[in-house]
């Protein structure tokens, strides 16, 4: 097993997440794409932790912090989506132009 396999896998997942983030019109799907990108970062951290720093596993510590922040982000993001849906009666990203000129 090589480190490069895991890094390539993380890069592919990150690119899929960016594609979903830019092209999706449903606001909940945008949040799912953000979760995909955070997981790609986690795969990178775990790969480096196992192959470059196996004695003291600091990458796993960072992964736990990233998981914590991702959980908080999901809760707040979904609350924002619910609030916007209640005010605007839509979840189309193209109509969320509240802060756009």
């Amino acid at each position: 097993m090589q480190l490069e396999y895991f890094l390539l896998l993380g890069a592919a997942l990150f690119c899929i997440g960016i594609y979903g983030l830019v092209t999706s019109r449903n606001a909940v799907r945008v949040l799912m794409s953000i979760e995909l990108m955070l997981n790609a970062v986690n795969i990178n951290l775990m790969g480096f932790s196992n192959y470059l720093d196996p004695a003291e596993i600091k990458g796993q510590v960072f992964t736990v912090f990233v998981i914590t922040v991702a959980a908080a982000e999901a809760a707040v993001g979904l609350a924002i989506v619910l609030a916007i849906y209640r005010n605007r009666d839509t979840i189309d990203m193209e109509q969320f132009n509240l802060l756009k000129w």
Binding site: A27, V28, S49, V64, I67, A71, L78, L82, Y85
Partner: peptide, 29 residues
């Protein structure tokens, strides 16, 4: 990658909490 604790935490937090939260949000909207 020899990380058993983080694997368990991944399942517990992501599948158990975040994914259920997303499903509830989908049901609400």
């Amino acid at each position: 990658l020899n990380a058993d604790f983080v694997a368990a935490a991944q399942i517990l937090i992501y599948v158990g909490a975040v994914n259920v939260l997303i499903l509830f949000a989908i049901m609400l909207v």
